[in-house]
Each structure stands twice: as structure tokens, then as C-alpha cells.
Design a protein around this nucleic acid. Structure first.
Lengths: 123, 123
DNA sequence: CAGAATCCAGAGGGATACTG
DNA sequence: CAGTATCCCTCTGGATTCTG
């Protein structure tokens, strides 16, 4: 199962953090990682319910990608009915400070962005 | 000029860093901000040449968005031929530590992601 | 030079239905 | 439950052309 993972900007030279951004901040990955980080090991439906508006198809795609990148660990329990659990890997956990940093920036500067937008729109 | 800025995940409750991610890590914004941060004030063509593969149309769109969010400052010099310069704003500069953090994570863990991918693909 | 306007293709994502 | 399989459709981004 091949997946498209090419960087947004072809020459990574132009932007050293390009690859990381593709891995960590591509569509839906942040809510998924955050949910897994905040609420621990979860089943498919739990994630589906927690991350509103995501469809099972897309959730599966993103989880597969995160698993492939080693950020998430999938555990399949062969029972009836089947049970699958997802959790953050050690590698995924290493993102925690980064996310905290992001949350901090958000708390400090998000209102400034909002103000900038209003200034721009009224002008 | 209205622009679509809704978050990727509707309830920001599910992911507190959703809004920031949309602002800072949406398509092309990282290479643009990085280029502006690394090489200082630049003209349109300079950015266009530095960020390979981006078309003028898309570059314009993204620059407008960044300007609206207050991360980038656009200066228009009414000359012939016209000259326009872009630079990082104070608010944009506040992202520097975050980007450094990202680059650090990249240096430390990117190879682990690569190994995880190879393991996944061979299995 | 710094875009704006127009047209277009393709890929990703949504909705729905189905299965082991 | 945990997905897979289709179909469909939007929406981004590319190519091209034009202008103050």
C-alpha cells in the first residue's frame, strides 16, 4: 500500500522544517495525535467520536500514515467483535514539548492574529 | 476579500492547537516564513525564485493570507517598474523559537521516522 | 515587476453502503 | 466493531494570458 508522502516544497533545502511539517501537521494528524496524547490508548470508535467531523475512511488513512511514520502504535485483538487500540509511540511522545510550545504560542499570540485580521478586513 | 479560514477540525475543543496549525502550517506558509526569516526583506520575484515550484498566483494568495494574519508586512513602492517588498512582522518573528524547536526535533528524530517507514514497508 | 483574470485538471475528502 | 469499497464532488493548485 503506497502512500504519497512527498514534501510540499520539493527542495528541502529551501525549508529545513518542510519534512517535519508534512509528517506532524498534515491534515487531521494534529487532532489525532492530540487526542491520543490527552486521553491515552483508545479504540477506533472513540477516536471517531472524539474527533468530530472525520469520516471512518479518512481516519483510517491518517492512522495508517501515523503508524507507518512510527508515531502511533496499533494493536489488534483478534476477538469477536474485533478490538483495535491505538496509542502514541515513544517517538510520538517526543512531540509533546513541541505541542506544548505551540499551545503556549497560541495562548500568547492568537488574539494578536485575530486583531490583525480585523484591521485588515476593515481597511 | 473574504478568505476561508475555518479550522480543520470544527470543534477547537478537540484540539487546542488546531487554530495555530491552520495559521502557521497551512500549505506553503512554512517555506515562505522561513525564507523571509532566513534572508530578510525580499521582493516578490526573489521569493518566487527561492521557493521553487510555487506559482505566482499561489504565492500571492499565501502572502495575502500571511499579511492578513499579521505575520508578514507588505510594502508597496509606487515606482516604475513597481517594487514590492515583504518582510516578517514582529508577530511573525515571535515564531522563531518555535521553528527552531521544530528544526531540532527534525534533527533528532527524522531518521527514526525514516526507519519506521522502512520497517513498515518491508513488513 | 507584481500581480490579476481565466480556465482547467487532478487529487483528496465526503457520503453511503457493505463485510469479516 | 473496525474497517473496506464505491461513487461523487469540491477545491486547491497549475498553466496561460494579460496589465498598470
Amino acid at each position: 500500500m503506497r502512500m504519497k508522502v512527498e514534501t510540499t516544497t520539493d527542495p528541502a533545502l529551501a525549508c529545513p522544517i518542510g519534512p517535519v511539517v508534512d509528517i506532524v501537521f498534515s491534515r487531521w494528524t494534529t487532532p489525532i495525535l492530540w487526542s491520543l496524547h490527552a486521553h491515552g490508548r483508545q479504540r477506533f470508535v472513540e477516536l471517531e467520536r472524539r474527533i468530530t467531523k472525520i469520516t471512518p475512511k479518512v481516519l483510517t488513512q491518517r492512522l495508517r500514515q501515523l503508524e507507518r511514520d512510527g508515531l502511533v502504535v496499533r494493536t489488534y485483538h483478534p476477538e469477536v467483535p474485533p478490538r483495535v487500540e491505538y496509542e502514541i509511540s515513544e517517538l510520538g511522545r517526543s512531540l509533546a514539548p513541541l505541542f506544548a510550545h505551540l499551545a503556549e504560542w497560541s495562548a500568547d499570540h492568537l488574539d494578536a492574529v485575530e486583531r490583525a485580521r480585523q484591521d485588515y478586513d476593515t481597511a
